[in-house]
Design a protein around this nucleic acid. Structure first.
Lengths: 201, 201
DNA sequence: AGTTTTGCAATGCGACTGCATTGTAACCAC
DNA sequence: GTGGTTACAATGCAGTCGCATTGCAAAACT
């Protein structure tokens, strides 16, 4: 066996360049040559690791989901909760929301990547299939937090509602039509009203 | 002056073809040739009416906003309310929501057009600028409905919250991850909880 | 009737697309 | 060192892209 290179690491390196381009200029700016250039490799190398562009896109999405969601997102939420009393559901949800809504350059890029793939998934079933479990997982995560808030709350339903709300807030924030602060205020109202309503239920 | 043709009508005819393509295959399937073919005209004709593709896209978005939102959407909501008691806020909001969430072929296409332009607006300021007032108008419309529900409700805030919720529900419905019925159930819960919470405020 | 202006159709251009092919250098097994 | 396999690099190719140019027919204006 020849030339020891870590196959998976190279693939990751390439799609991370792809994601960087997508996060800055959208998916329509992604071409094989552009990706190769951004990755600092030749086009032949890119083709060596990905047979087609679609395969590369799919791998990029999968990699982004694990990388962005599992690693970065969870870590940032944890950081945000560092000072708060552990296990407080409302604080956790707020932290998740604050992190979900883009507020810095990295968050903006991530959100841009998300909407780019989301909208393409609407016409590319392969991407939709890859995206579906990730979305379901996010809702489930929210659900477990709601569960810890007590049995008075319909956890699955509230998780779905909050997830939708966050998703709907993300784009206005991204477009600058809504500030991060204002969007978070909507979430705060939402969470506050939720506990009020259930307290009287 | 020569050759009597309705300039604006031709432009509309062309961008409607563009919107048909977008509603079926997304914005990335839109090219000058494809639009010309779909419109049943030559490429020269398309260029005669639009100097650049960007100009055509912008005009298409503006046309779609007036056509889809003002004409079709408002009309459909009115149809939905035909049998209901006039001026009942909850019923109106529910009708708007039911219509906003895609449930038939036309609604799906419209939603697809929306997400396509939305995601492109994230990297194309001209489109974002055209989209912003339309979104604000939708929120304002919701706001007036909430206002008619009585002073106990913070109308602007609730309008924003409902708009975000609907926006966040649209994509999962479009992707098939959520049925129209389930999504509407989320909205119903939302509206129900809203009146419950304010009743005790 | 002739001139001018508009509405296209046809064609072409350079850039770029994804993808295929070919060449070559590096590495390992023998 | 020879053969085989992997990792690329270079280049080519057919197709498509947005856009520019040109040409001509039809209709108003003079």
């Amino acid at each position: 066996m020849p030339r020891k290179v870590d196959h998976d690491q190279r693939r990751r390196h390439i799609v991370e360049s792809l994601l960087r381009i997508t996060g800055a200029q959208g998916l329509e700016a992604v071409s094989l040559r552009e990706v190769a250039h951004e990755a600092g490799v030749s086009m032949g190398a890119v083709q060596h690791y990905f047979a087609t562009k679609d395969e590369m896109l799919l791998y990029a999405l999968q990699h982004w989901l694990s990388l962005s969601v599992h690693d970065r997102f969870a870590g940032r939420v944890r950081d945000r909760l560092a000072g708060a009393p552990a296990g407080e559901p409302a604080a956790m949800l707020r932290a998740i929301a604050a992190e979900y809504l883009p507020h810095d350059a990295a968050g903006r890029a991530d959100a841009l990547v998300a909407v780019a793939f989301l909208s393409r998934a609407a016409v590319a079933p392969a991407l939709a299939a890859a995206l579906a479990p990730a979305f379901a997982g996010f809702v489930r995560t929210l659900g477990t937090v709601f569960e810890s808030a007590g049995p008075a709350i319909d956890a699955p339903a509230e998780a779905q509602r909050l997830a939708a709300l966050l998703d709907g807030l993300r784009l206005p924030v991204l477009a600058g039509a809504l500030s991060h602060r204002d969007a978070l205020a909507v979430v705060d109202r939402h969470l506050a009203q939720l506990t009020t309503a259930t307290a009287h239920a």
